[in-house]
Write a protein that binds this DNA or RNA. Structure first.
Length: 379
RNA sequence: GGAGGUGUGGCCGAGCGGUCAAUGGCAGCAGACUGUAAAUCUGCCGGGCUAAGCCCUACGGAGGUUCAAAUCCUCCCGCCUCCA
């Protein structure tokens, strides 16, 4: 057990905690920005740090494709390579089992990807994946899992659960024989089927990972299904270990997760949507490309402390994003990231001060129209 | 002055007798995006209706040929190129 996790406080199922890693402490609940290729698209490591990120996520499959794990290892490991000084969690490639389904072949022993870049074969087994992440020197490694798509039949979901369980055992053994400097997290699959989730939880619990993740959500299912899975599964995960909800989500998803005891989240939404002109604010979403912002001088979110809201207005960002100006993507990403990270900070603060309920109801009211905001311009 | 070319919906640009209210692209108006093959993708985009149908107005202008013209002919107008 390389990672020390302490729960500092609870409120209902929600909890505030502290996860110690080789590269520093992560105050939870925490949001982990996604930097698939080693960098969060559009922002520099120092900007990410300044935005308040305490941990970032990278992707093993993508780094294995390019530049190659050997290369990064020779350069001193992931942290030395990309200059990020805080903790890094790497996803194992389990998500690519789903997202790159056309480019891989699955078998009991693992996955063989055909690189989406040059077609080269890439073999991922539970052991190889553990080894590669160990060599990268990551703070949190994820086991190789099979992320089932959505929708999926019970049979299909069950097969993914079984395979993930088998792989989890092998990964755990590999890790036990040669542990890395960080921790290893297990992953619970099971799609939207409660009985499958139960089975998956039981087997993963038995393997005593440093943390446990709920995977197989945010793959296209309706929000209500996703939330049911969280409500059903999260309480069954070990209370003394960090719980990680993979790939989630919108601010309301995050709030929901926290209320049900999730400690860690990651999601591409703040960064991807920023590039696409969808900005988050405390009063809902702002689709900055919409014509109504053309001459709107107000900040994206008046309550936001990000460098973008401190200086320019909606009109400027409207222009940059519409024009395809690269700086527009940068500024929008800085804002969204700051919003997500601040949101988590506010949640931790609310937990600390015992005002979680008030914060939650207020946030739900304000963000109630999430994704469907009337986009009222400020004046 | 002579020879040739060209003029299409906000812009660029296909079409060269019917299946054309007219391919594409851009711009415009919206939408999607949840462990990133995504600075991507989708829909709408002449006007009007008792709208998966119908009716107007449209391919520089005016005539004409034809059952039928953005497409062929004549004249006019505007651009472009070459030669004097």
């Amino acid at each position: 057990m390389n990672l020390k996790f302490e729960v500092l406080q609870t409120a209902g199922r929600a909890r505030r905690g502290r996860l110690g890693t080789p590269h520093g402490v992560i105050e939870t609940p925490a949001f982990m920005p996604v930097g698939t290729l080693g960098a969060v698209k559009g922002v520099t490591p120092d900007q990410l740090e300044n935005a308040g990120a305490s941990v970032m996520l990278c992707n093993l499959y993508h780094l294995a494709v390019r530049p190659g794990i050997d290369t990064i290892e020779r350069l001193g490991g992931l942290h030395a390579w990309n200059g990020w000084r805080r903790p890094i969690l790497t996803d194992s490639g389990g998500f690519q089992v789903m997202s790159l389904a056309k480019l891989r072949a699955l078998d009991e022993g693992g996955v063989t990807f055909r690189s989406h870049v040059d077609g080269a074969a890439l073999r991922f087994s539970p052991e190889i994946v553990v080894d590669l992440q160990r060599r990268l020197g990551v703070d949190v490694a994820m086991i190789l899992d099979e992320c089932a798509p959505w929708p999926v039949s019970v049979e299909g979901a069950a097969a993914a659960v079984d395979r993930t369980e088998l792989w989890a055992r092998r990964a755990r053994e590999e890790w036990a024989s040669r542990p890395g400097t960080g921790g290893l997290f297990g992953i619970v699959q099971g799609s939207v089927y409660p009985e499958l989730r139960d089975r998956a939880v039981a087997s993963i619990r038995a393997l005593d990972f440093d943390g446990v993740a709920i995977g197989g959500v945010s793959v296209g299912e309706p929000a209500a299904d996703r939330r049911r899975v969280v409500e059903h599964t999260a309480p069954q995960l070990p209370a003394e270990r960090p719980r990680y909800l993979m790939g989630v989500g919108t601010p309301l998803d995050l709030l929901h997760g926290v209320l049900h005891g999730i400690d860690l989240f990651d999601c591409v939404l703040p960064s991807r949507n920023a590039r696409h002109g969808m900005l988050y604010g405390r009063d809902g979403v702002v689709r900055i490309k919409n014509a109504c912002y053309r001459e709107d001088p107000g900040p994206i979110d008046p309550a936001c402390g990000c460098p973008v809201c401190q200086r320019g207005g909606r009109a400027f960002l409207h222009h940059l994003i519409r024009s395809g100006e690269i700086t527009g993507a940068v500024l929008a990403t800085l804002h969204n990231l700051r919003f997500f990270l601040d949101f988590m900070g506010e949640l931790r603060q609310a937990l600390a001060s015992g005002s979680l309920d008030e914060f939650a109801s207020s946030a739900m009211r304000r963000l109630g129209s999430e994704g469907r905001s009337p986009s009222t311009p400020s004046t």
